[in-house]
């Protein structure tokens, strides 16, 4: 009987250790702790081009993560991308003239949405749309513009 009890205790400890390990992986090593699953309020924004923005990409203000991208859709009538984002509920004082930009973290990093606060006294609420947006920078376009302006610089002095 004593042996059975020892085995039971060891099995209990084993299973507890396994679940602790899972819990550790979930909370410490993954984004589960930082992803408030779905609660918060939703904003939309329209972009001419979202580049390689992905669902779940972070939405940040002043470099602090305030929410994440929930969905990216294409509007067939205006030929624009419609991005839905979920903002954590504690950040409920975002002015309604806030700018939404698509930035790239680092030279080769992933793209994210950066919000630049405006000066309006009115705050955005659930379902509102960010009017002022700036699209993602596409490398080929940038290079093209750069070459074009260089060519013009070269042409003018003559």
């Amino acid at each position: 009987m004593a042996r059975t009890r020892t085995i039971e205790i060891l099995v209990g400890a084993f299973m507890a250790a396994g679940f602790v390990a899972l819990f550790f992986l979930a909370m410490q090593a993954s984004n589960l702790s930082s992803a408030p699953a779905g609660d918060g309020y939703r904003l939309t924004a329209r972009f001419d081009n979202v580049g390689s923005l992905k669902v779940r990409a972070p939405v940040s203000m002043a470099g602090v993560r305030v929410g994440r991208v929930e969905g990216i859709a294409f509007d067939g009538s205006t030929y624009e991308a419609v991005v839905t984002m979920v903002i954590d509920p504690q950040y409920d004082t975002i002015p309604d003239d806030t700018f939404a930009n698509i930035y790239t973290s680092g030279l080769l990093g992933e793209q994210y949405i950066g919000l630049d606060a405006g000066g309006s006294p009115d705050y955005l609420g659930d379902g509102d749309q960010l009017i002022h947006t700036q699209s993602a920078l596409v490398l080929e376009q940038m290079i093209g513009q750069f070459l074009f302006s260089k060519a013009q610089e070269g042409a003018q002095p003559q």
Binding site: Q28, S30, N31, S33
Partner: peptide, 19 residues
């Protein structure tokens, strides 16, 4: 070490799939 991990390891994609 931890924050980069937390930012990129997805619970459902990585951990649940591993399980």
């Amino acid at each position: 070490y931890w924050s980069q991990m937390q930012a990129k390891i997805d619970f459902s994609d990585d951990i649940v799939n591993g399980v």
